[in-house]
């Protein structure tokens, strides 16, 4: 049945170049978006420093990884960076708490307009970007080690006998598993624990929460702890997958914000869904369907061009267009977030 193998080949091709990368990119975006949405709902401002803080945490991870590698410690087939991550979480937490203490706390106590705090966060973004570039420079760094693939294309081809292969990178596998575990933990924390409930209450109605004896300082602290964990893990996973470059972390800001707004600002589930909406749209729009169509269409109809909707350089444009469509048609996002 050649037509059946053709369809299978097309499906595998799609999985290899679109679905697997989109799943892992989406998970990375979702974790970052979750951090942004937490800051949004508890501290009430759009944190422009998110991308650069991710870069900061990744830089700490990279440095710790190098130290670990030099002392001969490795993590089997897993990347050493996973071992270095706890150090980075602590460093990132210290950094965001320090920033909160010296920058955001003042504006919070002053009851400043949200836009003033946003501006302060832009200042923090540039300082963080400066620190990142000062420590590691603007160049591309690859810090993943261990086994690169869980399944290589060749193994897959031998296993199934298809002409198309499906490769799963260790980093992609790690991204999806860690993201699922982390998101599960965050949701459990927010829904079931007392502190999580206090956070939700504070986010819903600050005055009422204060009246019922919730300690605002604790809520803020716990939020930053969650943000630091999410930020570090998102940053490291993105770096393991695509390599570290200061500018590309900075540019993650737009898709992250788009994910938050698409899902609905302040809605954690929305942030996750938004992350995947953005990643899947980016990949479906920039994927060249030529080979896929060759498998599926009869020879007479085979396309001559790449059959690509947009070139990959315009991937920001996709998050932006999605953002615009959501703002025009449903400003509250998919899962009704807060408006105005």
């Amino acid at each position: 049945m050649p037509w059946f193998t053709d369809i299978l080949n097309a499906v595998v091709l799609m999985c290899n170049f679109m679905i697997v990368p989109a799943l892992s990119y989406g998970s990375q975006l979702a974790l970052g978006a979750l951090a942004v949405t937490l800051v949004y709902s508890v501290l009430r401002f759009a944190n422009f420093a998110q991308g650069d803080t991710m870069a900061f945490a990744t830089v700490v991870t990279i440095l710790s990884t190098w130290v670990l590698q030099n002392s001969g410690i490795s993590f089997g087939f897993m990347p050493t960076a996973i071992l270095a991550m706890p150090i980075a979480v602590i460093a990132c937490l210290a950094y965001v708490l320090l920033i909160d203490k010296f920058v955001y706390e003042y504006y919070r106590n002053q009851n400043s307009k949200p836009i003033t705090i946003v501006m302060a966060s832009v200042g923090v973004m540039f300082i963080t970007g400066g620190i990142v570039r000062f420590v590691l420079g603007p160049s591309h760094q690859i810090f993943s080690d261990g086994a690169r693939f869980i399944i290589t294309t060749r193994e897959f081809k031998e296993m199934t006998g298809l002409s198309e292969g499906l490769a799963i990178k260790t980093s992609q596998f790690l991204t999806v598993t860690i993201a699922i575990m982390l998101v599960g933990f965050v949701f459990y924390f927010l829904q079931k624990t007392k502190t999580g409930k206090a956070m939700r209450a504070y986010s819903d109605n600050e005055n009422l929460a204060l009246l019922s004896g919730i300690d605002p300082a604790k809520v803020v602290r716990v939020t930053w702890i969650l943000v630091a964990v999410l930020t570090t893990i998102a940053g490291v996973l993105y770096g393991l997958d695509k390599g570290f470059m200061a500018i590309s972390y900075h540019q993650l800001l737009l898709p992250t914000f788009a994910a938050v707004i698409v899902g609905g600002i302040g809605s954690p589930i929305g942030a996750i869904v938004g992350g995947f909406v953005i990643s899947f749209s980016e990949l479906t729009m920039t994927y060249a369907y030529k080979k896929f169509l060759i498998y599926l269409l009869p020879e007479a109809l085979e396309p001559s061009g790449l059959v690509q909707f947009l070139s990959t350089e315009y991937k920001f444009a996709i998050s932006f267009v999605i953002l615009v469509i959501v703002l025009l048609l449903r400003p509250t996002g998919i899962f009704k977030g807060k408006v105005i």
Partner: peptide, 9 residues
Amino acid sequence: LRTDYLAIA
């Protein structure tokens, strides 16, 4: 819309 949407856009 929200003031920070302009910033993001």
